[in-house]
């Protein structure tokens, strides 16, 4: 065992990378759930984004184009969900599951041609002197641009939900769709927009895994990241800022257990590999036990079907 080989600075720096896909997927799902829709297909949208982004980046040689198409692919998948749940009034839990199963199948099918290929490298942002600051520089200012994009997105979503009229309408739709409908807001189009945004974010998160984090294509490579993103939305009590906290907590555990595996800690590898999932469950339990008292902070219409004439 050689715990001394773990460099804390490097650990925190890679924590930020490990957390980024979860941040992206979770912030998208947060907006979706704020509008009163429960989309359990995050995993399916992420893996679709992962393969779309990977395929496009490999074919075109441009990671930026890859990310753009990944967002588009994720949004397209999400709109299938939107069509089914908003217009055909299907059960959201079942439809979300269908999205995950379908996404895993389609991505594996498309991905066959892309096994064992390396994607083009994503450029790091040159922060000039900032990245030369001793410790902080390596932790904060030495990443690819998607890391900063994810952070900016969280800030935007936070500001949108808190300060803008659009955010207020979105939350109104999520808290009481009948009241929002009576006020003249168009519940279904608003929700479709939120669903598409959530899909695009999940797609970006997936592409981040296949293009930067791993970077390679293997079947089912998101390995539950979508489900963890869903858990983190619950952990965050549907607040944008706390999504960041949850994702960093999860990212930290993932990176730490990988480092401990490498350092040869005398604990079976499998126990370390299952620890992120176990800790996610533990955190979920603590949060839900706490939220029960305060009447819950979940949007009131979460998962309910809206049908105007009823």
């Amino acid at each position: 065992m050689n715990l001394g080989a773990i460099d804390p600075v490097l650990l925190i720096a890679s924590l930020m990378v490990a957390a980024t896909p979860i941040i992206l997927a979770a912030i998208g799902e947060l907006v979706v759930e704020k509008s009163g829709v429960l989309n359990l297909g995050v995993e399916g949208m992420m893996i679709t984004g992962a393969i779309c982004g990977f395929a496009v980046a490999v074919e075109s040689g441009s990671p930026v184009l890859g990310f753009a198409l990944a967002a588009l692919g994720g949004a397209a998948m999400a709109l299938i969900f939107g069509l089914l749940t908003q217009y055909l009034l299907s059960n959201q839990v079942a439809t979300g599951l269908a999205l995950t199963l379908f996404g895993l199948g389609v991505s594996a099918m498309v991905g066959q041609a892309y096994r064992g290929i390396k994607p083009p490298a994503t450029t790091r942002i040159d922060m000039g002197p900032l990245s030369d600051i001793p410790v902080l520089g390596r932790i904060l200012f030495n990443h690819d641009w998607m890391v900063y994009f994810a952070l900016a997105l969280v800030a935007c979503v936070w500001a949108f939900l808190k300060f803008t009229r659009g955010g207020l309408i979105l939350r109104a739709v999520g808290e009481s769709h009948d009241a929002a409908h009576a006020l003249g807001y168009r519940v279904v189009p608003i929700r479709l927009l939120a669903i598409a945004f959530g899909g695009a974010c999940a797609g970006l998160g997936g592409a981040y895994i296949s293009l930067i984090r791993v970077p390679q294509w293997t079947d089912g490579m998101t390995a539950g990241a979508g489900w963890i993103a869903l858990a983190i939305v619950v952990f965050a009590s549907w607040r944008a800022g706390r999504v960041l906290l949850g994702a960093y907590l999860f990212g930290g555990i993932t990176v730490l257990q990988l480092n401990l595996q490498a350092a040869g800690l005398p604990v079976p590898v499998e126990v370390l590999s299952m620890s992120p999932y176990l800790i996610t469950i533990a955190v979920l339990v603590v949060m839900s036990a706490r939220q029960r008292g305060a009447a819950g902070s979940a949007p009131a219409m979460l998962g309910r079907i809206f049908h105007a004439s009823s």
């Binding site: 999205l99 199963l101 199948g105 389609v106 099918m109 991905g111 066959q112």
Partner: peptide
């Protein structure tokens, strides 16, 4: 491709 049947089921 073997995965196409999974997509089919989804």
């Amino acid at each position: 491709p073997s995965a196409s049947i999974q997509a089919f089921q989804g």
